[in-house]
Simulated assay, not measured.
Amino acid sequence: MKKTLAFVLSATMMMAALVGCGSSETAETKAETTAETAGTEAEGDKVWIVATDTVFKPFEYTNENNEFVGIDVDILAAIAEDQGFEYELQSLGWDAAVAAVQVGQADAIIAGATIKQERIDNGWIFSDGYYDATQTFVVPSSSDIASFEDLAGKNIAVKNGTAGADFANKLKDEYGFTVSVFEDSPTMYQDVLLGNSAACVEDKPIILSNIKENGLELKVPEGMESDVAPYGFAIMDTADQELLDMFNAGLANIKANGTYDEILAKYLGE
């Protein structure tokens, strides 16, 4: 495209020089029109880059057929189809996904990201909420931990930069426990299963799915969860507002036509 445009501009300039000043405006107009057309073509071919986590079942994960699937994956696909845009989903891991959007290597992130003020203050621009979740403490199946008071003197595992980590840090001084930070959910679960941490904090739908599907020897005590908080799709550059607007419009449409409920039922049985 650059070579073609350069040729057109060069030819235009030569023509202007040959025929004199009377036709230079026409030549310039043609050059501008060519550039605008090229820009329009590029815009029409836009492929949005969306970053996500690698393992956050049932929202994003690799299934037994080595396919990347999940609630977030299906919601994004349904919205893109509804709105008619193209995208590339990049499975990077939580920290890398956030960093990719921050530095402009990706246009947006969808990774079970809780909408919270701290993120908004740090430049996240969220969509409408697409799933309401709570964070909960999770303990080994054999544990007798049944309340926050039972956590005194113990260590709690959390996932870096998540609402679960915020929930634990908010309570740690009051209930006298320490916190260890992990990069991903499976490593965090393993730390609890090995006995290095007495509990971890995870989004409730995530841990219930993992316990059911993977047979993890973990359980969720009653009464040890946070208030409801929504997940959001997010951009970090106002230049990508078009994508955010399409996401919101598409989300409303797939909720109205039943596609959204079908996706949840597929993964959660709701």
Rank of each mutant, 00 (worst) to 15 (best):
L243C: 11
N196W: 04
I211F: 04
N155E: 12
Q190N: 12
E222D: 15
A168V: 02
A157V: 10
V138E: 11
I145V: 15
I145Y: 15
F177I: 01
L243R: 08
Y175I: 03
S185G: 08
D245T: 12
M236T: 06
G232H: 04
I235M: 10
I235L: 09
Q241M: 14
G223K: 08
D150Y: 14
V139D: 14
D203I: 03
L194G: 03
T162P: 08
N160P: 00
D240M: 08
M236N: 10
L193W: 01
I235S: 10
E213G: 00
D237W: 11
M224R: 06
V201W: 00
D173E: 13
G161Y: 02
M246K: 14
D237I: 08
F167P: 01
N155Y: 12
N210E: 06
E174F: 03
A168E: 00
L194R: 09
K204A: 04
V192H: 04
F148M: 15
V158L: 05
A168C: 01
K212H: 07
A234V: 07
M246Y: 07
M236G: 09
E217R: 02
L171W: 02
A229L: 11
S180A: 10
D150W: 11
D144L: 15
S147M: 13
D240I: 04
S209N: 08
E242S: 11
S143G: 14
V181M: 04
D227Y: 13
I156F: 09
P230L: 13
V181R: 03
K219Y: 09
T178S: 14
Y231I: 08
L194Q: 12
D150G: 13
A199I: 00
P140E: 13
Y189V: 02
M246C: 05
Y231S: 07
P140T: 15
E202A: 04
E217W: 01
Q241D: 13
G161R: 01
N155P: 05
I206S: 03
D184A: 09
I145M: 15
S147D: 15
T187E: 10
P140M: 15
I211L: 03
L218N: 01
A198D: 02
I211N: 01
V139S: 14
G176Y: 03
A146W: 12
V138R: 07
I207R: 02
I206P: 00
N169V: 02
S180T: 09
I156H: 05
I156Y: 05
S141C: 12
Y189S: 02
V139E: 13
L151W: 11
E213T: 08
D237C: 09
I156T: 08
S143Y: 15
G215K: 01
S209L: 00
E222P: 05
E202C: 01
A152P: 08
F148P: 11
F233N: 09
I235A: 10
I211V: 06
E213H: 04
P221V: 12
L218W: 07
